[in-house]
Design a protein around this nucleic acid. Structure first.
Lengths: 148, 148
DNA sequence: AAATTAATTGAAAATTATTCTCATTTAATA
DNA sequence: TATTAAATGAGAATAATTTTCAATTAATTT
């Protein structure tokens, strides 16, 4: 009987990296861990802080490099806030969307696609071809609704 | 018979500004004009360049201030590109969405909301209240499809 | 039409965010 | 264990954004 202390997110990430011939470095796995632990989306600075807490010194450039790569690989999703800031949330490579709380930046993901039944052809003017979409819902989470 | 050289966008903007007790400065109207003339979304730098062409020297800070304000007022929408960059497009205060070409950053707006029939309640977990949404479609415009 | 006034601007400095370079380290493989 | 290509860290370089404050301007009043 095999023990497996790895969480799904961690082994998923390792798998994706291996498939692409990329290395599963301590830093990269720490980023996954930090994001997975958090119930809110995290800024670059927060992720950097978290990784430093886990590993000791870690270059900020590594965090940038990792997040960019993770976003390309679909491991992480970059969220956009009204104030112009960005947050990152784990997205496990599936087609999930995020609902974010504008007060605390809490993030809730869901797999139902709000545009699921949309007829893209109806808006594809002048030969435009829709390839992808980005959807993000804004609102207030339960805690912030109560606190208000 | 009154002459009216103003475009809808310009008078719309003046109206919104007046309602809020804000001034219709030359710089602000120039930003509207530049965005309205362009069939692609523009970066801050491009807008700044355009305004300088129209008015001579103009502070970059003014462009930032104007765009932030316009976004709050719903006059302009900030778009997010996969490379992390941002673009701005006129949005006339209505509920429009944008389809952007990832090659040339061309922007096409449409009023049909892809999430129109979505039941938000189905994803509002733990008391979350959805207040707004951001939707952006990605793809290639007709010209870039041909060019490819 | 000139005076008034509060909002806005420009310019430059300050801050923050992001990217780059390259010598050193490390994960994966042989 | 040795090898090697990929990845990291540190800090410099660059780019993006915000701030400050004196000067200017749009809207309003006289």
């Amino acid at each position: 009987m095999m023990k497996d202390f790895e969480c799904t997110q961690e082994s998923y990430t390792k798998e994706v990296l291996r498939e692409k011939g990329l290395k599963s470095t301590t830093q990269r796995l720490a980023v996954v861990h930090i994001l997975h632990m958090s119930e809110k989306s995290l800024s670059i600075g927060e992720i950097h802080g978290g990784v430093k807490d886990m590993l000791g010194n870690t270059g900020l450039a590594t965090i940038y490099r990792t997040l960019e790569m993770f976003e390309d690989l679909g491991i992480v999703k970059r969220l956009h806030f009204p104030d112009g800031g960005h947050g990152y949330a784990f997205s496990q490579g599936e087609h999930v969307h995020h609902m974010v709380c504008v007060d605390c930046r809490g993030v809730f993901d869901f797999s139902e696609c709000p545009a699921e039944n949309f007829d893209y052809a109806s808006v594809e003017k002048q030969g435009f071809r829709v390839k992808d979409h980005f959807i993000q819902l804004f609102g207030q989470c339960g805690k912030c609704v109560e606190a208000a």
